[in-house]
Amino acid sequence: MNPSLRLRAAIVSIALFLAFIGIWHIATRGTGTVATMTPEYAKLMGLTATAGKSAMPGPLDVGAKLWEHVRRPFYDNGPNDKGLGIQLGYSIARVGLGYFLAVIVAIPLGFLIGMSPLINKALDPFIQILKPISPLAWMPLALYTIKDSGLSAIFVIFICSVWPMLLNTAFGVAAVRKEWINVARTLEVGTVRRAFTVILPAAAPTILTGMRISIGIAWLVIVAAEMLVGGTGIGYFVWNEWNNLSITNVIIAILLIGVVGMLLDQVLARFTRMVTFPE
């Protein structure tokens, strides 16, 4: 019997990973002594010039540095030297707050739009114009009006997560099967109870899908937003390490951004599965 698909896929994944690491390692290997110079001068020039060490860190450098970060995630040596745990914590907190505000606004408003064709038509032009605006374009306006860079970042997260949730909620609510609504009508179920017992469970999978898209976008945007506002957060960390010319740290940050993004997506995916009903 063939080994299961899952096992075979895992083997291919590991092989690809090892191949990638191997190629990376070989590509960033030192080329040996390239120039002879006095030891004092060599000290000034660094290994890249003297020993032909690649300027791009290899997998071993990154691994060693990553281990260092993992062992001390929460150190704080002042504004420009904080542990990665702290930086990620700031970013997740900003995303969480902006996203939470977006949920509070988008889901009730989406319900209203989905249930009322009038509101739907009336708000449509605004939504159509506001939706395609890059969230970062709001940044100057936010900084000018809010006068606080941290809050501006949260606002940017809010504005980018609101649209997918709003549109999905409105669509999910408007697309609830007529027969379920009719069941509620023939049972003389009031509007509020109908919204909670029929429309909400029926639209929940669509709403959660919107929320999942939103959290993905929010996590994309926070990195860029923090690069702009500075101070704290994983986005600021990336930019700061670029200014420090620490490519190793930049690579580590990229890796962690991916991991956290995946985890956030998985959490939402789990919630979506919880509210999905088979038919």
């Binding site: 027969e179 379920w180 009719n182 069941v183 023939t186 029929v198 469970p201 029926a202 009903f277 088979p278």
Partner: peptide, 12 residues
Amino acid sequence: AVIFQSHALLPW
């Protein structure tokens, strides 16, 4: 009371 052709049960 109405009995619907498509039974219209709430699947959740």
